[in-house]
């Protein structure tokens, strides 16, 4: 899958799992290949053995979303004027999860492409460590490119305040979202909508239910890593837009 190669070998009473990341060329990030009878990975591959007595139940491979929130930054910051509403399509890297069998022990949980770490907070003293995602902040659905290992989150931002809203960065609560698979092979998450309140201090963050409408009856692939307690959060504006 892209730059990541995973080899899984069944040996007597154990699973032998190796992973290796090759050169980070952007071009081959979308390729994938499955070999049933491949050669062992090179010596520098990271290997792990899982001792597990198991009958003929098959392994289960599932995609998952990032295990930390993701900070997405448009390549060029833009202004959202009062009364305007916009839908951004933000793609985030998918993790590769390998279960010994359906709802069995988790053997492997790694990102297909390791996103860069970043810091999100008011100062270097307070905040949280997140993953960074650069986005072109595409506004038109047809322009969204197809990447097999990225999940798209539609984010609606409405500015109800009296001043313009400068969009430089946006914190997405990715661990609270699920993955859906559409008929065309694209991966989607629930839609998010952010309502910037009148006082320019707080915002309502609303998590959509089920697959987004644009995904056309996509089916659920994976549940969120940490289920959200509520569907609506009220957060300080700085806690969403940095």
């Amino acid at each position: 899958m892209g730059a990541l190669t995973v080899s899984v070998q069944r040996q007597a009473a154990e699973w032998h799992i190796c992973q290796q990341t090759s050169g980070n060329s952007i071009d081959d990030l979308d390729t994938f290949e499955i070999n049933l009878d491949s050669e062992a990975l090179a010596a520098e591959a990271k290997c792990h053995r899982h001792v597990l007595i198991q009958d003929s139940q098959p392994l289960q491979v599932l995609p998952a979303l990032a295990n930390r929130p993701v900070v997405t930054r448009p390549l060029t910051p833009f202004n959202l004027y009062p009364g305007q509403e916009v839908v951004l399509y933000v793609g985030t890297t998918v993790w590769y999860q390998l279960y010994a069998y359906s709802s069995g022990p988790l053997l492997l949980d790694i990102p297909i492409q390791r996103p860069s770490d970043t810091w999100f907070g008011q100062s270097t003293r307070e905040g949280e460590v997140c993953y960074a995602a650069r986005t072109r902040a595409i506004l038109n659905l047809d322009d969204v490119p197809y990447h097999p290992f990225r999940a798209i989150t539609p984010v609606t931002i409405a500015n109800q305040s009296e001043g313009p809203l400068l969009l430089e960065r946006l914190l997405l609560p990715i661990p609270h979202l699920s993955i859906f698979s559409a008929a065309d092979g694209r991966l989607w998450t629930e839609a998010l909508s952010i309502l910037c309140n009148e006082d320019m201090r707080s915002a309502h963050l609303h998590l959509g239910k089920g697959a987004p409408a644009v995904a056309h009856a996509a089916k659920l692939l994976a549940s969120p890593r940490t289920p959200p307690e509520r569907g609506v959060f009220v957060r300080a504006l700085g806690a969403i837009f940095g």
């Binding site: 980070n24 900070v71 860069s116 770490d117 970043t118 460590v129 960074a132």
Partner: peptide
């Protein structure tokens, strides 16, 4: 930028 451990921000 290529090193994932180096923070993008700051």
């Amino acid at each position: 930028n290529a090193n994932p451990l180096s923070l993008e921000e700051p």
